[in-house]
Amino acid sequence: MTTALLVIDMQNGFVHPEGSIPLAGRGLPNMDKVIAANAEAISVARSRGVPVIYTRHCYRSDFLDMPALVSGPLPADPPPLVRGSWDADVVDELAPEPGDVIVDKNRFDAFLYTDLEVVLRAKGIENLVVTGVVTSVCVESTVRSGQQRDFTMFIASDATSAPAEQHQPALDAMAAIFGTVGRVVDMLDLAMSERPESKALLAG
């Protein structure tokens, strides 16, 4: 199997109504639909033997690993995204199962300072179908980084979310150079296909 499903940061802190990261009070649009699309993708991936890899954006309890520049104040009570906390956990609807891989990260790019690339190389992964949040931040950062590491990237438009004014522009930017964008089940089908046209699409 050369394809994996990469589920980025679908954590309570970001997508649960009681999570700690309010995204300037706006929340993330269409989260019920996005969670449902992720659940469908995970189910399809498991049924086809496609590895499911989750990332969790989380920090030490003393926050020594937090970037020096963080946009906006963070809530103090409870502290956000602390490793091992409910806030940092994947939402119940998408809970990892035995055999899934979890990669904890403390930067937007899931490859930076983590063992994600080592895990992917060990599994022989060449194609990554990417879902999760936030489209314009951690998803896009990871897609760009993965493409630069010679992984073929497929981005799920229906299983990602960002503030409304950021979501589509981020998808457009990724589609221009860094990967193929479409509905998540279609992206799984395309990534798993051995047809030559699956890579020709990326060349435009």
Rank of each mutant, 00 (worst) to 15 (best):
V34A: 00
P67C: 13
V134N: 05
A39L: 05
L120Q: 02
V103L: 15
E18N: 11
I177M: 09
L81D: 02
V70S: 09
P80F: 08
S85P: 03
R26S: 15
S161V: 03
D65S: 12
P79A: 15
L94M: 10
G19E: 08
A159I: 07
D158W: 03
D62K: 11
A122V: 05
D189N: 15
D186N: 13
V137H: 05
M10E: 12
A173I: 02
G204T: 09
L188E: 01
R144W: 06
A173Y: 01
L23K: 04
D100C: 09
P78D: 10
R149P: 01
V90F: 11
A88S: 13
K33A: 13
S136Y: 00
P73G: 08
G72D: 06
G19I: 04
Q11N: 05
D150P: 03
A39E: 06
T160R: 02
D89W: 00
A159V: 08
E165C: 03
I8E: 00
L201D: 02
D115V: 09
H167Y: 03
G19M: 05
W86T: 10
L94S: 06
E18H: 13
R107V: 09
N38P: 13
L171R: 03
T160L: 02
K199R: 14
V70Q: 14
V119A: 08
C58T: 15
A68E: 14
C138K: 00
R60T: 10
I102F: 05
V34Q: 04
P163V: 14
S71P: 04
F178N: 07
D89Y: 01
V50C: 07
H16V: 07
D172T: 13
L128C: 14
S198M: 11
I21A: 02
P73D: 11
K33R: 15
I155P: 00
R144I: 12
N30L: 13
L128A: 10
V129P: 00
F154G: 00
V50S: 01
T3W: 05
G27T: 06
C138W: 01
I42T: 07
L171A: 03
L190I: 15
N12L: 03
A170T: 07
A4C: 15
E165F: 04
S157H: 09
E117W: 07
R121P: 01
V103S: 13
P98N: 06
Y59V: 00
K105G: 05
A191H: 10
V34H: 00
G146V: 04
L112M: 09
V82L: 11
